[in-house]
Amino acid sequence: MRPCRGRRRRRGHELYRAPRRSSSLDSLVVTHPFHPLVGQALPVLFSARTRQGLRFTCELDGGKRRITLPQEWTDRGPEASPSRLGVEGLAAARVVVDAVAARRTTRAEDPA
């Protein structure tokens, strides 16, 4: 009996290999406010639909590294909601929360 050497192919039936592209025809801009690459345009290698939504795989450092980004973090995602807080809004909310917490602490310490 011969040992199995993997799947055998018939003569003339080679695996299809897509040619590698040296340059990307498409790019996107990272728009997530807390992402380190915010504002940068990245070449898109391919996109894939997953359970979590559409994801884009982009190249970095001239093709040395790859990064996968959800659609919502790019200029291809939906427009940001006007009620969504940015960095300034979150900082202001933190000030309010700290003030309320300090007020509750002083009330708990004062037996009235």
Rank of each mutant, 00 (worst) to 15 (best):
M1G: 15
R2T: 02
P3A: 05
P3T: 05
R5P: 00
G6Y: 07
R7P: 02
R7Y: 02
R11I: 07
H13Y: 13
E14M: 04
Y16E: 10
R21A: 09
L25C: 11
L28V: 09
L28H: 03
L28F: 05
V29N: 00
V29M: 08
V30C: 04
H32E: 07
P33W: 07
H35R: 01
P36V: 02
V38L: 04
G39T: 01
Q40N: 08
Q40V: 08
A41R: 15
A41I: 04
L42M: 00
L42F: 00
V44F: 02
L45E: 13
A48Q: 15
T50W: 11
R51G: 12
R55W: 04
C58Q: 08
E59T: 09
E59S: 13
D61H: 14
D61F: 09
G62L: 00
R66S: 08
I67D: 00
I67K: 04
T68D: 04
T68I: 09
T68Y: 00
P70K: 14
Q71G: 00
E72L: 12
E72G: 13
W73G: 08
D75G: 13
D75E: 12
R76G: 04
G77S: 09
P78D: 09
P78F: 03
P78A: 08
E79N: 11
S81K: 12
S81T: 11
S81R: 11
S81W: 02
S81D: 14
P82Y: 08
P82S: 09
S83G: 06
L85W: 08
L85P: 11
L85G: 10
G86E: 08
V87K: 13
L90A: 01
A91M: 10
A92K: 15
A92M: 11
A93E: 15
V96P: 02
D98L: 13
A101Y: 05
A101T: 07
A102M: 00
T106F: 01
T106I: 09
D110M: 10
P111K: 14
